[in-house]
Structure formats: structure tokens, C-alpha cells
Design a protein around this nucleic acid. Structure first.
Lengths: 132, 132
DNA sequence: CCTTGACATTGGTGCGGCTATAGGGTCTAC
DNA sequence: GTAGACCCTATAGCCGCACCAATGTCAAGG
């Protein structure tokens, strides 16, 4: 399996895969005679896990650690760590969503002021008024 | 006014302000005898606008442009451009929030599987099951 | 055989918006 | 006189790739 096919299968890009390899996250695959990376099923599986974890938006470093644990057959530990990571992530997500919603409110409010009022002489007060 | 005080007033950092200056976004302020940056009220006001716009999460370049327009007394134009920027931003925000909520759902679902099931042999299917 | 076009390779820089650090100088208070 | 809080410049680092150039390699069609 070549890098392009693999990337497409997993919903990532050749560049990303090479980047993982460069950064030591992924072990270098076999090369075929022409020098192309040739991935076997084990490589692919490992990468699948990594990509899966990244799609959960875990930091690359953590995704790397977990996928390597998993590759070592220590999936029970992965499961535990993953649960804790998920919890943290969800807390973070909740916070982030709240922030974004608050920002949206402020934008809506400011928009309203810009529409109804005359153009403000200054924008100094942006985001300070009326939105605690 | 020295850089530290100004930064604190505006809820930013000295380093960030110096960065704006370095990148040509902010004109360099007067220096006092000891070489410290000395900001007057005009400087401060301009920066206040910039920071305000950044707090609305506009891209720095755009915030810079608008704050400079504003400093030139062309606030009417700012108002128009800002309205359009706000609209765009809100669209983007809505999308982002949806994404984050979807991610949260997937995390919750995966967490459930990790709790109830035995540890999975592989994590291959992460994020692929049951979440269309 | 030759061309065409789609892949691949290495090695590098660029992005945004700062933050952090190193290695100094300067002011104020005790 | 010295401790601590502030300031200066200059540089490196962060994240996770995306993108670029210059070059090599392959399969299919004429």
C-alpha cells in the first residue's frame, strides 16, 4: 500500500503521514524497490488508530502515546487513559462552546447597535457594554 | 503611561503590544528618557480599539485595518465593514459550534462504549460507529 | 519508443498570533 | 546597597500540518 492510497483510506493526507514519520510518531515503513513507502496492514492499523484519535481532536502527542500503547497490546491502559482524556476534552469543549456562544451574543449585540444607532464616533467600548 | 500599565488596562500583555508594534500594526510611541515606551491617550485609544476588535476574534490584519480607519476618523466606513465582518464571523461561529457539539457527542458515545463494554481489542473503529 | 499525466521523493518555508526565554538595563523602596 | 519590579532587544518556539520546488518513477495510450 502506498502513501497516497493509505492517506485517502484514512481521510488524511500523504503530507500528514510523512510528518508523523518525521516527528518520530510513526515508525518508518518498508520501502519498495523504487524508494516509495510501502505500508503493510500493521502499519495501516496503527495509523488508523492514530488518525482516529486525532479525529477526536486529542493533541497529537497524546494520540501518539495512546496509539503506541495500543500497538503494544496494552489496550486496557489505553481504555483507561482514553476515558480520562475524553472527560478532560469534554470539559474543555463545554467551556469552548460557551465562549463561542458568548462571543456570538456580543457580535449580535454589536451588530444591532451598528444597525440602529448612528455610526459610533469611536469603537472604544466595543464588547464592553451591556454584555457582562 | 508605560507598556505594562497599558497592557493591564486593556487586558493584554506587554509582549503582545510590542508584537503589534514590530509588525507595523501600531505606530511606535514616544520614548521617555530611559528608553521606555511612553504611551499617550491617543496611542491608548487606538490600541483599545484594536484590542476590542481582537476580542471579537477578528483576524489581526482586519482588526488592524479597521482600527486604523477608525483612527483616521472614518468611523462610518468602519461601521459598514465591521457589520459585514460580523456577519461572516457569526456564520463561521455557528459552523464551529456545530462541529464542536458533534465532536462532543462522539466523545460521549465513545465514553459510553468504553465504560460498558470490555476494553476493545483495537481502537480502529473509533469515531466511525454509530455517529453518521 | 515516446509522451503524458498522475503519482512519488526530500527538504524546506509559511501560517496565526502571539508566548517564552535569554541576557541585559533602570527605577524605587527599604 | 540590594532586592524586586519593571523595562529593553532579539530570538526561538508553539501547533499541525499545507504548500512549494525540483526531481524521480510508473502505467496507459498513441
Amino acid at each position: 500500500m502506498r502513501i497516497g492510497q493509505l492517506a485517502e483510506q484514512l481521510g488524511t493526507t500523504p503530507n500528514a503521514i510523512r510528518y508523523y514519520e518525521r516527528s518520530g510518531i510513526l515508525s518508518a515503513p518498508r520501502r519498495s524497490a523504487n524508494g516509495y513507502r510501502a505500508y503493510d496492514e500493521r502499519d495501516a492499523e496503527r495509523l488508523r488508530v492514530l488518525v482516529g484519535l486525532r479525529q477526536l481532536d486529542l493533541p497529537l502527542a497524546q494520540a501518539a502515546q495512546l496509539s503506541s500503547l495500543c500497538a503494544d497490546g496494552r489496550c486496557a491502559e489505553v481504555s483507561e487513559e482514553l476515558r480520562s482524556a475524553i472527560t478532560d476534552k469534554r470539559v474543555e469543549l463545554a467551556k469552548r462552546i460557551t465562549e463561542l456562544r458568548y462571543l456570538d451574543q456580543r457580535l449580535a449585540h454589536l451588530d444591532g447597535r451598528l444597525v440602529t444607532g448612528e455610526p459610533p464616533k469611536t469603537l472604544i467600548t466595543i464588547g464592553k457594554e451591556d454584555c457582562p
